[in-house]
Every structure is written in C-alpha cells, then in structure tokens.
Design a protein around this nucleic acid. Structure first.
Lengths: 213, 213, 213, 213
DNA sequence: CATGAATGAGTCTTCATTCAT
DNA sequence: TATGAATGAAGACTCATTCAT
C-alpha cells in the first residue's frame, strides 16, 4: 500500500494567495468609494475580498498602507497609457487629441474610472502625501504627455503658438468639469451623447466663442 | 437730566447664544476641512468654537446635522451672488464674463473658498443628498446665471450662437481644473499671476486654439 | 415720593409656586412609570410639570430626592385609608372584608393605582431603603389593619381561629397576583367582571376548595 | 492497543467561545439584578464574565438584545418544568399540588430564583414586549399546567367544581405575595418555616376560613 | 421664583489591530 | 497561509446638575 501522492489540492490555495493582493485592493477600492476611507470597515473589505479580517493584515499592514498601495496600483496604468498616447500621437497630434477626448468622454461615463481621482480629492486634506504622489506619478505625467502633444501640434503649425499649459487646461478642464458635475453632483449634463459632447468641445476649443468676421 | 435707563450691556450671555450657531459652523468647517468629516472630532469642533462638547449638541443635534447645516449655510451667499452677477451683467455680458473670471481666479487663490466644494466632492459618495442639495441650491443656480449671461451675449451678437451649456462649460472648466490642480493636488499651475491666467483663458476661449487664416 | 405698593400681580406666581411641588411629583410619577427611574429624564418631568429643567431643582435637590419624595407622598393616603378602614370595619368585620375586596378589585382596574408598588418593586434592588420605607410606612400598616380586622372576625367567631397572618395573605395574595398578571404581564384574567372576581375569591376564601361532605 | 489519538485538550479557546454566551448571560443577570437594566454597565457585565467590554458585543449586539436573550434563556427551563409537573401529577393531582407548593416555597427562599420575575416586573413598563414574551412563554405555560392539574382534581372529585382559574389564583397568589413581601420589601413573613407555611396555606386553601358547622 | 445656557462625567458602541491556534 | 476570538482606544451622544441673569 503506497502512500498517496502529494495532494494537488494545495494548488488552488497557492493560486489564490498570489491573486490575493489584487483582490483585496479591488475590494478596498469598492469600499473606499462607497463609504470613504474613514467609514470603510476593514471587515467589509475582507468580506468582499473573500477572506477574514485578520487575513487582510497578512498582505497589508494597516488600513493606511492599504489605501496607499491602492492608489499606487491604480496609478501605473494611467502613466503608461499617457506615454503610449503621446508616442502614438506624434504623427498627427490634432487627430490624436480628438481621439483622446473621445476616449476620455467615454471613460467618464463609467463612474468607476473616476473613483480614484474622487477618492484622492476627498483625502487630499488629510493625506497630502497621497495627493502629491498622485500628482507626480499620475496627473503630471498624463498632463505632460498632453502638453507634449499640443507642443507638437504647435510646432507643426496646426495650433496657435501660445502657452501650451493653458491650452492643455482648456482641453481637459471642460471634460473634467463635466465629469464632476455628472458623477459627483449627480446632475444632468444636458449636452447629449458622447459624440456631440466631443464635437461641441472641439468646436469651441479650436474656433473659440467669438463671432468671426 | 435723568440718568439713562440701565444699559443692556449685561447681555453677555444672550449675545453669545445668538452668535453661537455661526461660531460652531465656522469651527466645524475648519475641522471638517482639516480632517474630513469622519475624522473630525466633535470635541475639537467644540473647543475651537469655545464651548464644551455637550454645548454643540444644544445647537446641532448630531454631527451629520451639523455637516448639513454647514453646507446649507455656505450655499446661500453663493446663490445670491450668482443672481446679482447675472442681473448686473445683462448690459454688457462679455465684460461681465471677464469680470467674473477675474473674480473667480482671485477667489480660487484662497483655499478656504474651495473648502466647501472639496468637502462636497469628498462626501458625495456617502451623502448623495448633500451633493444633490449643493447642486440644486448652489451649483445649478450659479451655472444658470452664467448660462443666462452667455445667452444674452449670444443674443447681442457678441458670441457665436452655439449651445450655451457647452460654452458655459468651456468657461468654467479650465478654472475649476486649475483650482483643483493647485489646491487639491498641490501642484504649481505654471501659469503665472492671476491676470495672465485670465488673459490666456479668455484668449483661448474667444479665439480658439486653431491658427486663423 | 412714596414707592408704589408691592404689585399684586405676583399673586399668580405665589399660587403657582405653592402648587408646584405636587405638580412636579405628579409629573415625575408619570415619567417614572413610563420609563423607569433611570430612563426618565428630568427634562421630560419638568416639561410635563410645566416648568424648566432648572426649575425642578428649586423644589427637589436631585432626581433621587424627587423619587423618594414621590414615594413618600403616595404613601400617606394609603396608610390613612388603612386606618379608617380598620376602624370602620370593627363592627362587622366580615362585611368590611368584602367591602375592602370590592374596593381593591375596582382600584386594581386602574393602572395608575398600581404604579407606585410596581415602581417600588423595580427599584427595590437598587434602593433597598425605598423598599423598606414603603414597607414600614405603607405596606405593613395596611396589612396590619387587615390583620386586625381578621382578628376581630375571629374573636367574633365569624372566622376560624387560625394564624391571622396566613389568613391575611390568603385574602390579599390572589388579588395582588391578579393585578400583577393583568397590568404587568398584560394578560387577560379570564375571570370576568369585578363582581364575579370578588365572588369567586370569597367563595374559595371562606369555603375552601375541598368538597364538603 | 494503540495509544489514543492526540487529546483535543488544546481547545482552550474553542471551549471558551462555546461557553461564553452563557457566561455573559449569567454575568448580565447578576448585574441587571444588582443595578437594574439602565444602571448596569456593559463594562461591569464584561468584567464579571471575564472578558473585555468589546468582547460582549461579539455575542450580543446591544445591551437590549442581551437583556432579551437573558429573559429568553431563563424562560425555557421554567416552561419545561411546568410540563413535567403537570404530567407527573395527573395520577394524584392533590398530592401533586402539595408537592408543587412545597417546592415553590422552598424555591422562593432563594432570591436568585425570583430575580428574573422581578426584573420583568421592573421592565414591563418600558419593554412591554419582554413582559408579553415572559407571559406567553413562561407564565401562561406554568399557569396552564397548574390549571390542568386542578381540573383533573375536580374531575376526580377531589376538589369542588368551580372556576379552575380562580382556584389556581388562590393557589399561587398567597405564595407569590409572600415572596414579594419577603424579597422585595425585605419584610419578615412571620409565618415560620417552609413546612408551616405550606401547611397553613393548604389548610386555608382546602378548608376555607369560615367556621364549619 | 424662573430659566436659557452650559458642562463634566459617564456610557454605549465601534473598529483597527493582534494573537493563539 | 488563514482565522475566530479578543481587546484597547476612541468617539458620538446623553443627562443630571449648575449658574448667571
């Protein structure tokens, strides 16, 4: 009678363990969004992630660490995306800008995309380091890529040669405002479907409001 | 010449009691901003307002009620200001818009002006009713006034006849974004002093980014 | 120049002031019954008595003092009644007993009559002195009067000569139990109207349960 | 003969956890009796049960829930006892009644037996649902059993055929009164030892007070 | 006599975090 | 790795009581 071979059933756990941090992060994001950082309970995060309260502490040593890890984890893709975006758009920057706006408007329909920025805004007073980290590792990189794109367009003579930061602001601002209005305040934009939104945004952005001769 | 009747200077307490709600509200705002709603301690609010913990409950029955009262109190002036603004600007709307932008940019330098909106953003997920109240009683009124101004300008032929809501968004968006960038993320705008900011904002807003013939 | 005579309008207050203690006592009883001693709030007592919270302290120096005054105030009439009862019944004790039972059963219909005893029961653990005071100044006096009546009846040969305390217990017990059952536990006695109650009570009390030859 | 498998003596915690609810209930009863529901402090209950304040909340979600669980827990044995009693006494109900009285009188010597009923009486005004629960799940069941016994005795011709509820009341009332008198009011019964008590109680109950021909 | 305002002391309850298993 | 059990520390809220007017 031979002893049975090592049971392979431990594999499942190994797999699970590897996926755990991400599961927890996801759960934490959901809870932080729903209730805010302070009001979110570790127990709920744990439950949502499918493990026990104590289990979360095996991966993240405290609630604050969990929060920071979360922000960090959500930042990387953004920065990468920004770099890709900038590189891809070098050939035809004006077209790239429109594509970006298109994408942005579509993304902003999805409340979960806005979740991290909203969280950061809410936490910025109490955790300035989180805000700064978000700025330097995400916001400034994305903005930098955008500015680069605009500068390229200016160099190509496709846009007027003015302060590119002001231009970038004019590009992002209205969309950001729209997103906040809709998702934070729960208001109706009254601007119709995404296509129209981008359309009128670009119309104003490129042509201005003033009556042309 | 008879001596005047006993002066009512004995009213120390009475005076205090009347001023109390506002004092508490002010203290609460400060604490909520510093620590967020959850982390703010009633005791600290009380201390800042110069009375005991229990004293606060004489005027506001709970922390949440205090928060809501605070938001409400901060909203009224905004709405009034918006109405005044709209009325005053009817004669020369374009000029009025620039004046508004001027004022707005200057206001946004002062972090305390942004405090309530930031608070609302941070709380919107957990207290949707607060967000809605803020929208209907402050944001929509101000936005409405702005839109009215823009419509007047369009009617007068000073601006192109396009969707006024899109125009309003293009007007506010960049300034809002700038404010968030500076005060929430702690970034440098890199756009220089207020005058220049308004200048470039209006340049783009009116003339657009595109190269004119 | 003579000073004006003391204004007589203070009369109303004087009147009020004299009635105040009793009003407060009444209000306190009501609140104590509704919520128990601990859960009763001085403010509610004050409101019910028609004055301010601080006003109560003009008459009773603390909540506990108020409680004790209340018990004391409710005790006196009981003891007096008992004495009267005993004296009046000496001539025909058996008849008096029935009259007493009649009255008792009728009183027990009124929950407010039972209020003080119930209060005392509830408080006896924490305020043994109150319980003792109630016993010595009310319960024992009433019971003593009853025993006296029973002894008289025995002396007259109307009742068997047995331990009068046991007889008194047999007289009161069932009615007391009935009252508790109805008012404390909220149960139906299932014994019909007061007359029947007294009837069957006396039937058993006098004749016993056993089948007679 | 192989050595027995590793004994599960390591279960210290597990054992503890299983026993905890009962320990807490016991502690709560003690504190509730000593101080009443309101004045009892959760911390004291916890300390008495041998855990921390927060620990109690692991088992009972609030003080009120704890109270209700306590009442419920103390009720079950009573109801069971009543059923047993009734069944056992069917053969010779009169004898059973005397046995019951004997037991009851002895039980009533022990103040802790009376604790729950006293608690219920004290709480009945503020928690009518507790009173009702006690009545339906304990008092009425016990009373029902007693009435059943009495009816059997009547059917057998051992007792007069009268309203059995009135008879039951005459049976319980004096003992209940005696218990309250002794334990609540702290009075002396003056009726001597338990045997005599039962003796005189039954004498009166069966034969009545009236002089027989 | 009367009270509005104020507070100190206290209690319930929650929750991030730890630990024995 | 995983968790059920446990807790220390903290905070919201209450209320009997005081006091200046």
């Amino acid at each position: 009678m031979t002893s049975p071979p090592a049971p392979p059933q431990s594999r499942r756990w190994r797999r699970r363990a590897e996926a755990r941090p991400e599961e927890i992060l996801e759960a934490a994001l959901a809870e932080f969004i729903k209730n805010g950082f302070e009001a979110a309970r570790m127990e709920d995060i744990a439950k949502r992630a499918g493990l026990s309260k104590a289990g979360v502490y095996l991966y993240f040593e405290s609630k604050e660490v969990l929060l920071k890890a979360l922000i960090r984890a959500k930042i990387t893709p953004l920065a990468e995306q920004a770099a890709v975006m900038a590189a891809a758009g070098a050939a035809n920057p004006l077209f790239a800008l429109r594509a970006i706006a298109d994408m942005a408007v579509r993304l902003l329909r999805d409340p979960s995309r806005l979740a991290v920025p909203r969280l950061v805004i809410g936490l910025s007073a109490r955790f300035p380091d989180i805000a700064e980290h978000y700025r330097t590792h995400a916001a400034e990189i994305a903005l930098g890529a955008l500015i680069g794109l605009i500068e390229t367009a200016m160099a190509k003579g496709q846009l007027r040669a003015i302060d590119p930061r002001a231009a970038a602001r004019a590009f992002i601002g209205p969309m950001f405002f729209e997103a906040m209005w809709t998702h934070v305040l729960g208001g109706e934009s009254g601007l119709g479907d995404p296509e129209k939104l981008v359309e009128s945004h670009f119309d104003i952005l490129l042509n201005g409001l003033e009556v042309r001769a």
